[in-house]
Design a protein around this nucleic acid. Structure first.
Length: 736
DNA sequence: TCGGCGAGTGTTTTT
DNA sequence: CACTCGCCGA
């Protein structure tokens, strides 16, 4: 999203014009990369207002806070009066849920739980279900619950369905417990924000009517990445007016793992039968050479609507690729390449490096520091994930929401106050007897005879402190944080640490001051003030929100974070089998296609120069392993000249994390042959056929997914195991 | 009560 | 390799 060309006098193409002028009814804008989508959306908002629609009646939903902010600025720059609601789905839901809290059966001061909060809750939920965390891994359970929530399955509906097997019954129980814990804490997780809003819209005609009246014109960007809950929310919001305009690109759907359903955009015309469909296929961003690579790659995907990438500029573009020895060499290569770009006149902020996983930034950072290149890592959790920040936020959450036990338990012993497990348990038991929350239990214990005098005093002191903080709740958030910082003892304990450990801890105190500074900005600028608002807003900050286009630094980020951005120069590192595509995606063709789209997204961020690198060896989890070139390099026609041995392989699942057990068989094979021939097992398979595999022996084909060069066969082997194999590498022989 | 230490474990992407 | 968890000693 470049900020240039904001002037409303700028000329639009015919199709852009069509999209901008469309007013009433449904519209689907299929917008390829670089097709001026953001400009279309903002121009349309301006056009709606010009035609007499009140800004107050317009709602635009973006994918990230950053995108929302940017769009807000653009709308303002168009000299259109304010009042348009622009936010992410999640922020919108927070607003709705607070406004209609009673109807949603929650209280408006709810906490929003992040990953680590959720993890604590799920562990407790598993324990109270009398199950163990070995067989029911917290992470996995959370993932499945998230999936359920995204599909709007409540614990009740799940429990009512008695048909499930043992595992689903356990899951159902865990889900129920987990939700009970969240309810008790007056807390919502990310998925709840969507689910509760969707239910509210579905079940309460009054609310639905009011919101439809409020948001007469709804626009949803990045529609290809909406999940079922978001889809239902959008539908609910536009149900009466029918004025829904969605924009997106199925080829850029990269959040399937988070429940995003590409079918939402594919089936839009069915949902809204009179929908106008506009395709934006002209690309104003990238040079033709880059587009050719992108188009070649994405063309391999099977499940897609055909769409062109038409170069609409005469940018001279270049695409290079390089194979380096290991990740250090790769990072140094990138640093040198960046220096060349700078020498050639490029701005640092016009250079970006993308990678598949966050951990890959490390080698880059070292090389950039060595090379004295200024960089920014687009990764936000960093700051809000720091211990001292979380500690501080825990206090604030307790102040707004004493039922938030996760925060309460954190705050009560940071810094240590000599209140231990036993005491907490005692109070917990007492509170349960009395039918009150833990905090209220403390309040009562502080004066009662439940605890020893000594402990009672400690509790009393803590409760008094929190109650005292509550008095400041209507002051500026920044002031309250300052008060909490000093009166809670957090400052003292950090100071002591700092003094004893030299200056290594100085950052902790500075971080709190930075938090205070951020809060000051919130106090000054935010539309809706107050502590609860502040906390709920912070909870929704994300990685991509930290990207600063004006930083004057090279940007490093994951491919996911790169969505929606553009740079003159893009470098994508780690184009290796197992990384891009990621090994966790090997089993499902749909996931392989998503990986391909991810690479596609990365490629199409570049205006002038695209460089792709891989390395021959990579150290993962402390072990150095030989790598295999990504098939995507070949599909896109950009394999490095100094070509790596492209080895035949089997799906490396279950054989550990490395690929070592399949790299022996390849030594002699000619790489180019292995690729272009498509392997030895050509043609189609059908379910039921008997096949033979070198290593796994005999088996029967269960599924065949014809994906051209990357077809996948799922085979159930006689050994009992079922494997998904890439057809062209699996070396399957048909039997009989 | 709490911090330190050692064994064990798990590794994608993020609102 | 890095992080978490649980146990033990002070």
């Amino acid at each position: 999203m470049n900020s240039s060309g904001l002037s409303s006098t700028i000329t639009l193409t015919k199709s852009q014009q069509q999209a901008v002028e469309h007013k009433d009814g449904a519209m689907l804008v299929i917008a390829g990369p670089g097709s001026g989508k953001t400009r279309v959306i903002t121009s349309r908002i301006a056009e709606l207002i010009k035609s007499g629609v009140s800004p107050y009646n317009i709602c635009a939903i973006t994918f990230t806070n950053k995108a929302a902010e940017e769009m807000r600025n653009r709308v303002i720059a168009m000299h259109v009066s304010g009042g348009v609601h622009i936010s992410t789905f999640h922020s919108l839901c927070v607003r709705i849920l607070r406004q209609y809290a009673a109807k949603a059966k929650i209280t408006p001061n709810f906490s929003i739980y992040d990953d680590s909060d959720q993890k604590k809750c799920i562990k407790e939920a598993i324990k109270t279900a009398d199950l163990d965390t070995k067989n029911f891994q917290p992470r996995r359970m959370l993932e499945m619950i998230s999936r359920l929530k995204n599909n709007l399955e409540s614990p009740q509906t799940l429990e009512a369905d008695n048909s499930g097997d043992y595992f689903s019954k356990c899951l159902s129980k865990i889900y129920k417990n987990y939700q009970a814990i969240l309810d008790k804490h007056n807390a919502l997780d990310f998925d709840d924000l969507l689910l509760k809003t969707a239910f509210l819209l579905r079940d309460d005609a009054d609310v639905r009517k009011q919101l439809n009246d409020r948001f007469k014109y709804l626009m949803v960007d990045e529609y290809q990445d909406t999940n079922h809950a978001q889809y239902q929310i959008a539908r609910g919001l536009a149900m009466i007016s029918g004025n829904i305009c969605v924009t997106g690109d199925p080829d850029q759907s990269v959040y399937g793992w988070r429940g995003a359903d590409i079918a939402n955009i594919m089936a839009f015309e069915k949902d809204w039968p009179n929908a106008k469909v506009v395709k934006l296929e002209e690309n104003f961003r990238s040079g033709a050479a880059i587009l050719a690579v992108a188009e070649k790659l994405i063309g391999v995907n099977k499940n897609r609507k055909a769409k062109k990438l038409i170069a609409a500029t005469d940018i001279e573009a270049g695409v290079t690729s390089e194979c380096l020895e290991d990740e250090q060499a790769e990072a140094v290569y990138v640093a040198d390449y960046v220096k060349e770009l700078i020498a050639a006149g490029s701005e640092l902020s016009e250079i970006a490096v993308f990678y598949r996983v966050n951990s890959m930034s490390r080698a880059l950072e070292e090389a950039f520091i060595d090379g004295r290149i200024n960089y920014q890592i687009v990764r936000g959790v960093e700051f809000y994930g720091r211990k001292e920040i979380r500690d501080m936020l825990a206090y604030l959450k307790v102040v707004t929401n004493p039922d938030d036990e996760i925060s309460l338990l954190r705050a009560i012993n940071t810094p240590p106050r000599g209140i231990g497990k036993v005491t907490i348990e005692k109070i917990g038991d007492y509170a349960r007897q009395e039918g009150v929350g833990l905090y209220d239990g403390m309040v009562r214990c502080a004066s009662g005879e439940i605890l020893s005098r000594r402990v009672g005093q400690k509790i009393s002191a803590f409760v008094c402190m929190i109650e005292n903080f509550k008095k400041h709740i209507d002051e500026d958030v920044s002031e309250l944080i300052d008060v909490v910082f000093h009166e809670s003892g957090l400052f003292d304990s950090l100071k002591i640490e700092q003094d004893s450990q030299g200056h290594s801890q100085a950052a902790a105190i500075d971080n709190i001051y930075e938090l205070i500074n951020g809060a000051k900005k919130f106090d000054e600028n935010s539309q809706e003030k107050g502590l609860v608002n502040y906390l709920q807003q912070i909870a929704l900050f994300s990685d991509t929100d930290t990207y600063d286009s004006q930083s004057g630094k090279v940007s490093l980020m994951t491919l996911h974070a790169a969505k929606g951005l553009e740079f003159d120069n893009v470098i994508i590192i780690g184009a290796e089998h197992g990384i891009l595509p990621h090994e966790r995606s090997f089993d499902l063709p749909s996931e392989m296609e998503e990986e391909r789209r991810l690479f596609f997204v990365g490629i199409t961020r570049a205006r002038k120069n695209l460089a792709v690198t891989m390395s021959r060896y990579r150290t993962v989890y402390g072990q150095t392993k030989r790598t295999i070139a990504s098939q995507f390099l070949f599909e896109a026609g950009i394999a490095p000249e100094q070509e790596p041995v492209f080895e035949a392989y089997e799906s490396p699942k279950k054989s550990g994390y490395g690929y070592e057990d399949n790299y022996s068989q390849a030594e002699g094979e000619s790489p180019s042959k292995a690729v272009s021939s498509g392997g030895s097992s050509k043609g189609a398979f059908t379910a039921g056929e008997m096949v033979s595999h070198k290593k796994f022996g005999l088996g029967r084909v269960r599924e065949f997914h014809n994906l051209g060069g990357s077809s996948v066969v799922m085979v159930q082997f006689n050994s009992g195991q079922t494997k998904s194999l890439m057809l062209k590498y699996a070396n399957l022989t048909k039997i009989g």
